[in-house]
C-alpha cells in the first residue's frame, strides 16, 4: 500500500461525515456542494435517489452536479470503487479539482467486513486524484467498532463547523494490517462436501464445475465459481505456502468454496487495489473475483490464510449480462 497522510501536498482528501439522518446530512453538505459549483469544481453526489434529488434541488445550479443514484441495496464495495474510478476518469477528475459527496449505504455487521476495506482502499486507489471525497454515514446505523474503522481510514472529519484533520488517521497502516484477521466463515464449522489437498488449478476447476452443476447452479454461477476457484488455487500455489487445501460445501442451492494455504496471506486490501498495467501478464484475478461475487471472505490466522466464497443461482449474471 502507499498512503498519503492527508497533510500538505496530499492529493486526495478523504473526509468522514457522521450525520443523524438524511435531513441532517443535507444541511451538512449543501453549502459544501454549492461552494464546489462556485469554484468550478467537478461535483459528484452519490447516494439514495431521494437524497441525490434533494441535493440537486437545494443547490443554486443543480444541473452542474453529476449524480449517481444508487439505492442502498444495490451497493457493492468492489463494484462501487471500480465504477467510481471510471466515472472520475470520464469527468476529467484527474486534472480538475473534484468534490464528491457519497451517502454510504445502511451498514450491516456482515457487510462491514468489505465496506471497511473499501474505505481503506479509497486512500490508495483514489490517491492520484485531486479529490475531496466525503463519505457520509448515518451515525444511527454504525457501531462503535465501525466508527473506529472509519476514523482510522479518513484523513479528515467534517462537521457543521467544516473539515478538521483527523489524528486517528495516523494509525492507518497498523489498523488496516489486521483487517483479514477475521472470524472463520460460518460454513467452516460444518463438514465439507469434499476436500482436495494440493490440487492443481485444473483439478480444482473440474471439481467445482462438477459440484456446481450437480447443485443445479445456472451456467453463469458455475462459471463464476470455477473462475474464482481457479484464481484462488493458482494464487495459493504461487504466493502461499503448502499445502493448498480446497474444501467445498453444497447446501440449499448454494456452493461455498474455501481455499487455504499455510502462508501469511495477501495484502489486507486484496482485490480492491489499483490494477496493474495492461502489459502485466496477470495480477487482476482477485479484483475480478471481488467484482463478480457478492460473498468473498478472507481470513488470516495462525494456521495460515483462507479465502472463502459462495455462489448461488444468479451469481455473476448481473455483471455478465
Amino acid at each position: 500500500m502507499s498512503l498519503h497522510d492527508g497533510g500538505p501536498g496530499a492529493v486526495l482528501r478523504h473526509e468522514l461525515v457522521l450525520h443523524d439522518g438524511p435531513a441532517d446530512l443535507l444541511d451538512l453538505v449543501v453549502s459544501y456542494v454549492a461552494e464546489g459549483e462556485a469554484d468550478d469544481d467537478v461535483v459528484v453526489v452519490q447516494g439514495e435517489p431521494t437524497f441525490v434529488d434533494a441535493v440537486v434541488r437545494a443547490v443554486p445550479d443543480g444541473s452542474r452536479v453529476h449524480t449517481v443514484a444508487a439505492p442502498s441495496g444495490a451497493r457493492h464495495p468492489a463494484r462501487d470503487l471500480h465504477r467510481f474510478l471510471i466515472l472520475l476518469n470520464d469527468l476529467g477528475a484527474g486534472v480538475r479539482p473534484t468534490r464528491v459527496v457519497n451517502q454510504m449505504p445502511t451498514m450491516t455487521a456482515a457487510g462491514w467486513r468489505e465496506w471497511r476495506r473499501y474505505e481503506a482502499a479509497v486512500n490508495v486507489t483514489l490517491a492520484p486524484f485531486p479529490i475531496r471525497g466525503t463519505c457520509a454515514y448515518d451515525s444511527r446505523s454504525v457501531s462503535d467498532g465501525m466508527v473506529e474503522d472509519l476514523l482510522a481510514t479518513h484523513s479528515h472529519v467534517r462537521t457543521a463547523q467544516g473539515p478538521d484533520l483527523n489524528a486517528a488517521f495516523a494509525g492507518f497502516d497498523d489498523h488496516v494490517a489486521g483487517y483479514l484477521r477475521s472470524a472463520p466463515h460460518p460454513r467452516a464449522f460444518s463438514e465439507p462436501t469434499l476436500s482436495l489437498t494440493e490440487p492443481t488449478a485444473a483439478q480444482a476447476r473440474a471439481t467445482v464445475r462438477q459440484l456446481g452443476t450437480r447443485a443445479g447452479l445456472d451456467a453463469s454461477a458455475v462459471e463464476a465459481s470455477v473462475l474464482a476457484t481457479s484464481e484462488a488455487v493458482a494464487n495459493g500455489r504461487l504466493h502461499g505456502s503448502p499445502p493448498v487445501v480446497l474444501r467445498a460445501w453444497v447446501a440449499s442451492g448454494r456452493v461455498t468454496v474455501a481455499v487455504s494455504d499455510t502462508g501469511t496471506g495477501p495484502d489486507p486490501l486484496v482485490g480492491l487495489l489499483p490494477q496493474p498495467s495492461r502489459e502485466a501478464e496477470s495480477g487482476r484475478g482477485m479484483a475480478i473475483v471481488h467484482h463478480l461475487l457478492d460473498d468473498v471472505h478472507h481470513r488470516v490466522s495462525a494456521d495460515g490464510y483462507t479465502i472463502t466464497f459462495s455462489v448461488s443461482c444468479g451469481t455473476g449474471a448481473a455483471e455478465a449480462s
Binding site: A219, S220, R278, R284, A320
Partner: peptide, 14 residues
C-alpha cells in the same frame, strides 16, 4: 464467448 468472458473483456478494458 460466454457471458463471463465477455464481461471480463470489458472489465479488463482490453
Amino acid at each position: 464467448a460466454s457471458p463471463v468472458t465477455r464481461w471480463m473483456v470489458r472489465f479488463l478494458e482490453l
